[in-house]
Amino acid sequence: MLKIENLAVNYAGIKALRGVSLHVEPGELVALIGSNGSGKTSLLRAISGIVEPSEGNILIDGKRINDIPSHKRVALGLAHCPEARHVFAQQTIEDNLHLGAYLRYGKESKHQIQETLEEVYTIFPKLRERSKQQAGTLSGGEQQMLAIGRALMLKPKILMLDEPSMGLAPVIINEVFNVIEKLRQSKTTTILLVEQLAFMALKVADRGYVLEQGLVRIEGKAADLKGNPVVQEAYLGLAKK
């Protein structure tokens, strides 16, 4: 479904990605783990077209999308829930959700969009309670829920989540991951999850990739990665015995 071939990204001479290849199959949840600065976010930003790769191909359903501008990639069913949430703070929660469905206006009836809105409210009941509130007044966890909900409003084929745990309290992180787990079980969308909390991510994922300094270091089934001594030592905080 999503395929990355030999992707490289440079920021003013600094190599963030140095030839990354990976693939995500329909219905899968693939976790991308790695420490700060390993290139995880750059990869997602390249996929959604915010940064331009210097080399390599990005393919969706076998079609190369490198030259498609970022706002048109969304029309291919690619939803990107950005790092640090980036909700539209001055607009209401409901407006934020409507904006998530921006591309569906004009193509689908108001009724269909309303239906998705109801689905999102069912997943995140707190958002319904506060639907008329400004998004900037929400707590970090609630903003994360809103950012995920906003991405779901597109009814995406591929959902990319960038560090949904960032800056959140452990209880809230659990809540967020419960939702991700539920999304996976419902099989409504394919998910590419970027996360520093390797253990949490591998628990919900089917497969995983470990990024290190802009390269894929290890890849495999999530369960295998959890058992891999290198991963355990570097990312799961378990010492060698």
Binding site: S48, G49, I50, P69, S70, H71, K72, V74, A75, A79, H80, P82, H86, F88, A89, Q90, Q91, D95, H98, L99, G100, Y102, L103, Y105, R150, L154
Partner: peptide
């Protein structure tokens, strides 16, 4: 209107507006 909200979205955060499919 959804188009008006899109204008506001662009004024608040252009990159994120693109992620919604809004042509900035």
């Amino acid at each position: 209107t959804i188009f008006g909200k899109a204008i506001q979205a662009v004024s608040e955060d252009r990159d994120t507006a693109s992620l919604m499919g809004i042509p900035q």
